[in-house]
């Protein structure tokens, strides 16, 4: 077993406490409900008897540690309970809606990385130039923008005024049929089925919400890329490389850039945290049928199991993303090869 394999495995083990913490907190959240959960879940027309039945069915008559064990067992079996308003199992609904959220989030992150990384790097290489000032202005303005407000502003400009974007109502206009389900990403699925018209339609629906989310994540990534690049450029090995007469291009894009990417990868974890939160707001603004808007609908009708299932699913997704980031970091950083 190679050093790196062992490192990756130990990183995976380190994610376990976080996962345990997430499960404990989400258990605590399900028991914080004010009043008696059994009465709550039995609904307004409940009798004494049906409340007692629900109490036993939910295991609320057991001691707290036993309740936790039951909760953990249900989770392991993939049982997040049933939605109060639709009666469907929460896990099924989340799984059905997850691809929509992932499609939006990943597109947004790719878009913002594609803009923020070159911007941050250029700003650092030409420190003090107009592009550096533009980058700083964008970074400060970017973190001050409420995502939901940016989304509404984009809708007003690109849908109402210019008419370039389709109505902000979900993933696909009703004139198109949804493509055969393979990955769950409409654009990818439609392209795989060779249906370019539907792919175009899905892309047009996607571009505004993805831009909204990308504008929000642009700022932290650009800020970190600039700072990391500045730090790398002022380091000793760059001075040595310059003294050795290497070309500017090679110094910037080979030596400095590779080293500067490490702290940027670390920041991506925090950016993911913000993105998953902002995702909820963007989905609501654009009626995007992802897990965020599912949770918002559930919140409005106090559909309790659905919200907790959503929080847990998001947290597990986030722990998994952080794990991926850690592993990528381990694989990218040559220094982690010899140390543990």
């Amino acid at each position: 077993m190679g050093q790196r394999t062992r490192l990756v495995l130990s990183r995976m083990l380190q994610a376990l406490p976080a996962l345990a913490g997430v499960v404990i907190v989400s258990f605590a959240l399900t028991r914080m409900l004010p009043g008696d959960p059994a009465v709550y879940f039995a609904g307004p027309a409940a009798t004494e008897q049906s409340i007692a039945q629900i109490r036993v069915a939910m295991g609320l008559d057991l001691s707290l540690p036993m309740q936790f064990l039951h909760y953990a067992r249900d989770l392991l079996m993939g049982d997040l309970g049933n939605s109060l308003s639709t009666g469907q199992p929460v896990l099924e609904e989340l799984a059905r809606r997850l691809p929509a959220s992932l499609e939006l989030t990943l597109t947004a992150l790719l878009l913002s990385c594609a803009i923020a990384l070159p911007l941050g790097v250029t700003a650092a290489v030409h420190q003090g130039s107009w592009i550096d000032h533009a980058c700083r202005a964008l970074v400060t303005a970017g973190v001050s923008l409420p995502t939901f407000f940016t989304g509404i502003a984009l809708i007003y400009v690109f849908y109402y005024l210019l008419g370039w974007a389709p109505a902000p109502l979900g993933r696909l206009d009703f004139v198109y049929l949804s493509p055969p389900d393979v990955t769950g990403f409409y654009v990818v699925d439609a392209l795989m089925a060779g249906d370019f018209e539907t792919a175009g339609g899905a892309m047009r629906q996607l571009i505004l919400p993805a831009s909204t989310l990308a504008l929000f994540t642009l700022a932290p990534i650009a800020r970190m890329a600039r700072a990391a690049m500045l730090e790398a450029l002022s380091s000793d090995y760059i001075r040595t490389a310059k003294a050795a007469g290497l070309s500017q291009r090679k110094i910037v894009y080979f030596y400095a850039f590779q080293n500067a990417m490490l702290p940027v990868i670390t920041t991506l974890g925090m950016v993911f945290s913000f993105t998953l939160g902002a995702n909820v707001l963007v989905e609501k603004v654009f009626s995007w049928p992802g897990i965020g808007s599912y949770a918002v609908e559930a919140l409005v009708v106090s559909d309790y199991a659905a919200v907790q299932g959503f929080v847990l699913a998001m947290a597990i997704l986030f722990v998994a993303l952080n794990l991926v980031i850690d592993i990528v970091y381990t694989l990218v950083d040559p220094r982690t090869r010899s140390t543990t």
Partner: peptide
Amino acid sequence: TIMAFPLFVLAMGIVAA
């Protein structure tokens, strides 16, 4: 443990609970 959650989502869960 708090930081293991996407923070806005955790806030939603807390208010719901």
